[in-house]
Simulated assay, not measured.
Amino acid sequence: MDLQILESDKPDDAYMPIWAPLLAFNQETVGNAQGKPYALTITAPGSDEVLGGLWALSLWGSFYIGLVVTPKGRRGSGLGSELLRRAEAEAIARGCRQMWLDTYAFQARPFYEGLGFELFGQLDGPAPMFPRYFMKKELS
């Protein structure tokens, strides 16, 4: 069978058709490859507008934190620490062995280190975006 490679003009629409065969392979190979998402949202009382929050995914005993955002005027108030505390409690409840995330040089590495995360990988590149840090926290 001849094959061709095309550039999609709708990359978001292409994600699921590309993901489906990889998910099927993972399921066949190791089983239970469906991650379980988790989210916390920050809103003002009486409003549905999302001002920030945390999004994560547990899979195979690991808890990946993909997004952490607090409202600009509330950074440093403990709100981010509370998001991570709740995420850690959920990760433990799900039986995860570790949490992990990535952050850029201009973002929040010291914040995560203060919460017990340790560096396990780094990608270098041009400032001010890089380095990009990969961090993990072992759970008990």
Rank of each mutant, 00 (worst) to 15 (best):
D2Y: 06
Q4E: 13
L6Q: 14
S8H: 05
S8I: 04
D9A: 14
K10E: 04
P11T: 02
P11H: 04
D13P: 05
D13S: 14
M16V: 09
M16G: 00
P17A: 01
I18T: 11
P21N: 01
L22S: 09
L22K: 07
L23M: 04
F25E: 02
E28P: 06
N32Q: 13
A33M: 08
K36P: 02
K36L: 10
K36M: 03
Y38C: 01
A39L: 01
A39W: 04
A39M: 04
L40M: 05
L40K: 01
I42Y: 03
T43G: 01
T43D: 00
S47P: 09
S47Y: 11
E49D: 11
E49K: 12
V50W: 09
L51Y: 10
G53H: 07
G53I: 13
L54R: 10
A56C: 10
S58Q: 14
W60F: 14
F63G: 07
F63A: 06
F63I: 03
Y64S: 08
I65D: 02
G66Y: 15
L67F: 15
V68Q: 06
T70Y: 07
T70P: 03
P71Y: 10
P71D: 00
P71A: 11
K72N: 09
G73H: 14
R74Y: 12
R74Q: 14
R75E: 15
G76L: 07
G76T: 06
G76I: 05
L79R: 07
G80L: 06
G80T: 07
L84G: 08
E88N: 06
E88V: 08
E88I: 07
E90D: 14
A91G: 12
I92Y: 09
I92G: 07
I92L: 15
A93I: 07
A93E: 13
A93T: 12
R94G: 11
C96D: 06
Q98G: 02
M99T: 06
M99V: 09
L101E: 01
L101K: 09
T103Y: 10
T103S: 12
Y104M: 08
A105F: 15
A105T: 03
Q107V: 07
Q107E: 03
A108M: 04
P110R: 03
P110M: 02
Y112S: 01
E113P: 13
L115R: 13
G116T: 03
F117Y: 15
E118D: 02
E118Q: 12
F120M: 00
F120C: 01
G121Q: 00
G121F: 05
Q122Y: 02
L123R: 13
D124V: 06
G125T: 02
P126Q: 01
A127D: 01
P128D: 00
M129Q: 10
M129D: 10
Y133E: 00
F134L: 07
M135Y: 13
K136M: 03
K137T: 13
E138S: 15
E138L: 15
E138Y: 10
L139Y: 13
